[in-house]
Design a protein around this nucleic acid. Structure first.
Length: 420
RNA sequence: GGUGGGAUGUCCGAGUGGUUUAAGGAGCACGCUUGGAGAGCGUGUAUGGCCGUAAGGUUAUCCCGGGUUCGAAUCCCGGUCCCACCGCCA
């Protein structure tokens, strides 16, 4: 969430930033409630002073009188606070200054293209066809058992999946990332703090109401929340994690969109990067994370483009976001593979994650500051599989294994089983 | 799922209704002392809010949320987490 002081002093900036994200924010009500809240707090504090004095002097009569006032003021303040918090939690993070103001995703900026789409001398198959032919993706049986938007991965599909995970993990551990496998179920209350429940966000998640738990949509959710209510020392920053987990999404509101195959499914595995940094270093950290993502696609030798989101395509929590889109031959389009997001101190404020600036440790009057959090996709494995299958396909439907993964899967090529 | 025990400041730990706006100890910081270090002595040592230029004042917070009371770390109710044992279990 945003600092209430910032909102108080810059109501127009907040209104504008939210509007550019196509989110309506009742700024006037927030300011009014904030004002009321502060006045009433002051009065209540005064009453507390009286109460404490009466208690100390054993002035039972006087205390009784104050008590009545205290009770009614507390009730009133409680209601104001509740409403104010609700509204504050619904204020989105503001877009960074260098983010283009746009109406919708069509105004996203393509920053660069790397590699050029391969020309095929035959009619390409899409990943669904290839998956069936190679017997590595089974959608029909998944539909029978779990419903639409689920998949069984089999045979070499499984090997590729683990190869991608292992390749990403190896690379990132070398970079000093701490490997981690997080819980995929987190308290619904925690999910709210992470910032993904507002403005219909809860519709995108699977909730287990009986237990008050929610399935994570990405490892970011459980990894960022890990350091809730903690303070880092500046000298320990940046702290970087690489997580591996399944990710779950309801995909409500995407009916009829990408219904074919495993591009958009309810469950997929993902390698995810999370960084905690100081405010000074968060911008370069985002570039660093994006650079890693690019290196991965370069290593796979798959053509891609980097897209910078305009304000309208930024999520509730993001200040700035880049996507990598890989070339998908069957669609003759670039499709989203990864994203690298900068959340400033927005998440940290909700989760109360701070750092102690260098040189202030152990000093009187030290000031802790909110940390900056960033997250980026290592591999969204399902989608990366699509990109590999389609870009590496041959005329007979077999698929060449990208060189970089061969050490992990121990085969050079996946061939159609029926032709064997 | 059952039974019992527990959660207090940076840490250890005392504290079952009113000089506890939390004893004592350790650690840490600063000062004195010292040739230097240690020991010793002294001072300081949580976070958020509000008032104040500041010094400072005030308030809330003893796991969290309610309640009782003039007054709650302390009593009552609900919850969370930790520990032990029992049951079940990959």
């Amino acid at each position: 969430m945003l600092d209430i002081k910032f909102i108080r002093e810059n109501p127009d900036k907040v209104r504008e930033g939210a509007k550019n994200k196509n989110i309506n924010v009742p700024i006037d009500e927030i300011l009014r409630l904030d004002q009321e809240h502060r006045e009433l707090s002051r009065i209540l504090q005064e009453l507390y002073t009286q109460r404490n004095r009466a208690a100390k002097e054993r002035d039972i009569e006087g205390g009784r009188e104050v008590k009545a006032e205290v009770d009614s003021s507390e009730d009133k303040l409680g209601k104001i606070k509740e409403r104010l918090d609700e509204l504050l939690y619904a204020v989105p993070n503001l877009p960074a200054l260098d983010v283009k103001i746009g109406k919708d995703e069509s105004e996203n900026e393509i920053i660069r293209k790397v590699g050029s789409p391969k020309k095929f001398s035959f009619k390409v198959r899409d990943h669904v066809e290839l998956g069936e032919l190679l017997e590595i993706i089974d959608l029909e049986r998944a539909a029978k058992v779990s419903g639409t938007r689920f998949a069984y991965l089999k045979n070499e599909g499984v090997l590729l999946e683990f190869a991608l995970a292992q390749f990403a993990l190896d690379s990132l551990i070398k970079e000093g990332f701490i490997p981690i496998i997080p819980p995929v179920l987190i308290k619904t209350e925690t999910m709210k703090k992470v910032g993904y429940m507002e403005h219909g966000g809860d519709e995108d998640m699977f909730h287990i109401e009986k237990d008050g738990l929610t399935l994570v949509g990405t490892a970011e959710h459980s990894i960022v929340a890990m350091h809730q209510d903690e303070t880092f020392l500046e000298r320990d920053l940046p702290v970087r994690y690489v997580g591996f987990s399944s990710a779950f999404r309801r995909e409500a509101g995407s009916y009829g969109k990408d219904t074919r195959g495993i591009l958009r499914v309810h469950q997929f595995d993902k390698v995810e990067m999370v960084s905690y940094t100081t405010p000074e270093k968060s911008d370069s950290e985002q570039d660093y994370l994006l650079n890693i993502e690019e290196k991965f696609f370069q290593a796979l030798k798959i053509p891609y483009q980097v897209v910078k989101m305009c304000t309208a395509d930024l999520g509730f929590v993001q200040a700035k976001k880049y996507d990598i889109e890989a070339w998908i031959p069957s669609q003759e389009k670039y499709r989203e593979m990864t994203s690298a997001s900068h959340l400033t101190d927005f998440q940290a404020r909700r989760l109360n994650i701070k750092f102690l600036p260098a040189g202030r440790q152990g000093q009187k009057g030290l000031e802790k500051e909110f940390i900056h959090t960033l997250n980026a996709t290592g591999f969204a494995i399902g989608r990366t599989l699509i990109a590999i299958l389609e870009n590496y396909q041959e005329k007979d439907g077999s698929v060449v294994v990208p060189e970089i993964l061969r050490n992990y899967v121990n085969i050079d090529k996946i061939s159609p089983k029926k032709l064997k």
